[in-house]
Design a protein around this nucleic acid. Structure first.
Length: 413
RNA sequence: GGAGAGGUGGCUGAGUGGUCUAAGGCAGCGGUCUUGAAAACCGCCGUGGGCUUACGCCCACCGAGGGUUCGACUCCCUCCCUCUCCGCCA
């Protein structure tokens, strides 16, 4: 949610931004509607003031009661009108995208993202590299067939040493983030509509949500929803910022409409797992915190020995709540391509406004916090490990940092 | 799932249908006193919105939403949440 005051004071700015982000809301109409709303608010409040004044008078002058009764009829009509206008304004306001950082590149989709850097040497194999699906099949550590049998296509099992490797990586990543000052959470894996709305997943990604029948609950698409929602309706002590939170949860997405895209292997699935980074910070600190999260993502991949590149995500590839976003794409020798493994978004005050998360300083300074939402690692990183650490016979070497946790150095057929 | 109790400001805790944004206490902030500190005393001490050059004025908010009333923290209804006891249970 953007600040409606900006709409009132500088609606050209809002209009230009909405157009650039392909937003359908008619900003001019919205402004006119808002002006109408404000005018009604004034009328209503004046009438209320009159009503309150007369009500007090009733104690000494019972005749005023009749006047108030009549006044209340008019007031009720206006209040209905005000509510109706407010609803209409809010409905459109919720669809307005966040503002953009100046350095966000133009573009339609991920092919227009701007490469910032490449890090790590790509492995060269004296044999034809397999992709993670082929490796997983051969090693018996990824079972998509039984995932489909038990749940549905798009669900899968990590099996045996694959599961051990995966859990080792997730545990290790959480531990590294805790070392870097993050507080570890175990979070609910369901959240109510208000929480999804507040984090910007509703209404923008309604199609992606698994709703629980008969409940105001949905399976989380990411623990960003529950970690950011954690502080909804709260005012945080400014001195306690930035607050860095992490958690490990499954993430559920319907992936409606994305069949066929990146469908080989377990790249695009209905349930994956993620170690998340969330930061709540003061407004002027969010660009720095955004970089901190990127540095953490890079650190994790470097420690794991995965080559990657960082891209500055273009307008068309960024969700409406985002102000600036970095993706990291890992190198997948089996696919012969860089593919997205992490994403890191500065949401500025977009979520904080919707969830009403503020900060207050000792000197009285106050405002909405900024939030950063970034990946730590996901199952896709394990896929990258499989592809980058494969050997001629289809076995996979375990990255050194994970060996103390797996208890083995290699996964062999 | 069954039975009961309760939701008031940062915390605690009062509140007869009107003078209640709401006593008192604690914490916090400022001051007096003091070499300094403590204590004591004095004052300040909610959020959001609208209007105003400004002093300031107005509106809303006592879990949420309705209702009764000229007027609701107070009465009525619905819902949510918390706590206690019982049952079941990873």
């Amino acid at each position: 949610m953007i600040d409606i005051k900006i709409l009132r004071e500088n609606h050209e700015l809002v209009k230009t931004n909405a157009a650039r982000r392909g937003c359908q809301v008619n900003v001019d109409d919205l402004c006119a509607l808002d002006q109408q709303y404000l005018a009604t608010v004034k009328e209503v409040e004046n009438l209320r003031a009159e009503r309150n004044r007369l009500s007090k008078e009733c104690q000494t002058n019972p005749a005023a009661r009749e006047t108030v009764k009549q006044l209340k009829v008019t007031l009720a009509e206006l209040e209905t009108k005000q509510d109706e206008l407010k609803k209409q304004v809010d409905e459109q306001l919720t669809w307005l995208p966040n503002f953009l950082s100046e350095d966000v590149p133009d573009g339609k989709d991920d092919t227009d993202n701007q490469e910032i850097k490449q890090v790590g040497g790509r492995p060269s194999f004296a044999f034809a590299a397999r992709d993670h699906q082929a490796l997983g099949d051969r090693l018996g550590i990824i079972d998509t067939a039984r995932g489909a049998k038990v749940a549905q296509s798009g669900f899968y099992y990590w099996v045996g040493k694959g599961a051990q490797l995966t859990q080792a990586m997730f545990f290790w990543a959480q531990r590294e983030l805790v070392k870097k000052g993050f507080t570890l959470f175990m979070s609910p894996c369901a959240a109510k509509a208000q929480t999804l709305f507040g984090t910007g997943y509703l209404p923008f990604f309604k199609d992606q949500t698994y709703n629980l029948a008969g409940e105001d609950l949905a399976l989380i698409g990411t623990s960003e929803q529950t970690l950011v929602g954690y502080h909804a309706e709260e005012t945080l002590d400014g001195a306690s910022l930035p607050r860095c939170y992490t958690s490990f949860t499954p993430c559920f997405r319907t992936e409606a409409g994305s069949y066929g895209k990146e469908s080989r292997g377990i790249f695009r699935v209905h349930q994956f797992h993620k170690v998340e980074q969330i930061i709540f910070c003061k407004p002027d600190d969010s660009p720095r915190c955004h970089e901190v999260c990127l540095a953490n993502e890079e650190y994790l991949l470097q420690q794991l020995g995965i080559p990657y590149r960082v891209v500055n995500v273009c307008v068309g590839d960024m969700g409406a709540p985002g102000y600036k976003k970095y993706d990291i794409e890992a190198w997948y020798p089996g696919f012969g391509a860089y593919r997205e493994v992490t994403s890191n978004t500065n949401l500025t005050d977009f979520q904080a406004r919707r969830l009403n998360i503020k900060f207050k300083d000792a000197d009285g300074g106050r405002g909405f916090v900024h939030t950063i939402s970034a990946t730590g690692v996901t199952d896709r990183v394990v896929c990258a490990i499989l592809e980058n650490y494969q050997q001629a016979d289809g076995s996979v070497v375990v990255p050194e940092v994970l060996r103390p946790l797996t208890g083995f150095d290699v996964i062999a057929p």
